[in-house]
């Protein structure tokens, strides 16, 4: 759509600007302020320069949390994206199955995140949970509070349970936009099922898939509540992701300086990712239209 150049449009954006500035810019400035100062209590602050940043970037704790978080994000993407595509491809296109699938699949997306954690905490317990009990009865030693592998498996399966539907719904939205005539053309050309997927459905899903991957990557990169409720970051530090580590530092130990420095580094990473997301969202969309 052709847009007119009109700087008065700023007045319409102003309320949003003020509100978000209040809830984003002022807090961020506080963080910047703390990240370069040291305190010994009593609200007395001393200039610390880049001390906290060099401490953070030289500490294993930060890198451990970062790699753990990256590994988590990549694992859930590797599971959720192919699974989401397969489910979206096999979903019904017409009839009573469509609303049924859409509603039941979207349900986990609307559950409060700590309740998702609670559900899986209960579900996985070997004394009262269905999953934990079943695994124990099968002779598998499964205890997510003791065994790091079980904790990781639980957190990953929980995320797959929680968010695969997002990939499914997005892919499905891409699939139903393919006109029936395309399939007829493919049929006349004698295209195999794989060829239909590879040369017709996948290119049509390309854009929504990209959005799904980016959204899942970013949201899993700031995951906090669900693993916190289930494992509390443990056993040991094995499921301590970036956000959990940051909250531990900022609110648990009240280490303002290091926590602020970590917030800024964390935020810069997110900013970079947002930029990739934005470029994809806007430029790719223009090419399609």
């Amino acid at each position: 759509m052709e847009k007119t150049w009109n700087n008065k449009a700023w007045f319409m954006v102003l309320p949003v600007l003020l509100l978000v500035a209040f809830s984003a810019v002022i807090p961020l400035m506080t963080v910047v302020n703390y990240s370069v100062q040291d305190t010994f209590g009593n609200n007395e602050f001393f200039w610390a320069g880049t001390e906290w940043f060099s401490e953070l970037l030289g500490s294993d704790r930060f890198y451990d949390a970062l790699w753990r978080n990256l590994a988590f994000s990549l694992i859930i993407l590797a599971i959720e994206v192919p699974l989401g595509i397969v489910i979206a491809l096999s979903m019904p296109k017409t009839g009573w199955g469509v609303p049924l699938c859409l509603v039941t699949m979207a349900l986990p997306l609307l559950i409060p995140w700590n309740v998702v954690g609670t559900i899986w905490q209960i579900f996985g317990r070997s004394d009262i949970g269905l999953l934990g009990r079943a695994l124990t009865d099968l002779g598998i030693d499964y205890n997510y509070t003791r065994d790091p592998f079980a904790a990781w498996a639980t957190v990953i399966v929980m995320d797959v349970w929680h968010w695969t539907s997002l990939v499914v719904l997005l892919c499905y939205a891409g699939l139903v936009s393919i006109p029936e005539a395309y399939y007829q053309a493919a049929r006349i050309d004698g295209a195999s099922r794989w060829a239909v997927f590879r040369y017709l459905q996948l290119p049509k899903m390309h854009r929504v898939l990209l959005i799904a991957v980016l959204l899942r990557f970013m949201d899993s990169f700031m995951i906090y509540t669900e693993p916190f409720v289930v494992t509390g970051g443990g056993p040991g530090n094995s499921t301590t992701f970036l956000s959990i580590d940051l909250v531990k530092m900022a609110i648990g130990q009240f280490d303002l300086g290091p926590a602020a420095a970590m917030s800024i580094v964390y935020f810069l990473i997110v900013l970079l990712l947002s930029w990739v997301f934005y470029t994809v969202m806007t430029n790719y969309g223009e090419g399609e239209r």
């Binding site: 150049w5 008065k8 935020f267 947002s274």
Partner: peptide
Amino acid sequence: YRFLGDKHLFFWLLTNRMAPPAVFAL
């Protein structure tokens, strides 16, 4: 409309949607 800084503003809004709540809690 197109106006001065519209694209930057739109992007800046997005960064807030993507901001980790953990950064903002304290």
